[in-house]
Amino acid sequence: MFYIHSISSISHQLSFQSDGFSEKLFVLDDTSSLEVPDFKDILPPTALRRLSPILKISLTTALECRNKKEFDAIVVGTALGCLQDTEKFLNTIRTSTSETLSPTAFIQSTHNTIGGQISLFLKNHAYNMTHTQNALSFEIALIDAITLLKEGNNNVLVGAADEKIELLEKLRNSIIRSKYPLTSLATFFNLKNDQIENGIVIKDVTVNLNSTIQLGDFIDSFLEKNGIQFNEILKVYHSDCEFINGENTMNYLPYTGLNYSASALATHMAYDELSHNGKGLILIVNNICNNDFGLTLIEKC
């Protein structure tokens, strides 16, 4: 059992420093925007002027999860990385006539810039890993974090972030086909072995890449492995899965928007709901990418 000791999200919902936000979710549309705090109160001037939005929201949510001890590991999942800086850097290469290129966009254009900036800011020299696996990047990062805890570490920062840029909007009706608005978000949490009375745990997480089995069969085998019957689950959060419907289910995409790290925000929603609504299990089903399945089981003890 892996206990969530603190959790933070910045998204298009009112999720930042807002206990109970899962009860006030609203359906997003194309006019929705990131609900950000005043970064001037949180980040130093150098970060304010240099960091792109995905870095600001990732660093801010990561800082919210700090505790007195240095993290044993920082693990990040991101599908598309720092898109804004990637686009800026590529455009500079394309249009520049000089031999030198601006270093800032280059430095900040890699996927592992998120974990790197968190590490730099916290002066943390521990394990620092970024996982990128399309819409399962968060689940893969979570598996890594849990593996680290099983190996004897006890203070892991894990999370996921992805950002929307205008180029993605232009691709929306070609490469990206979705009825949900594109969004930006970052969710980070502090995962530990240390127990909390009535705490909320990540009970298990699994993925199946390029699956040749049906999602329903995959869910059944996951629950069987954990000794759980489907009717024991308080609620199922899913990413617009046709066969999951009924009173105790929720398609989270209308609330997270289409974002490859949406399941990380769904985990925060589940955490928030369990915090306020007694004991039980919530299953988060991620099938944003057709044949890639991610399942996360979260429980209030």
């Binding site: 240099r50 520049s96 000089s98 030198t100 601006s102 270093p103």
Partner: peptide, 14 residues
Amino acid sequence: DSIDALEFIVLLEQ
């Protein structure tokens, strides 16, 4: 900081 120094080099050339 040092990254800004690199930006100065770019500024002078461009």
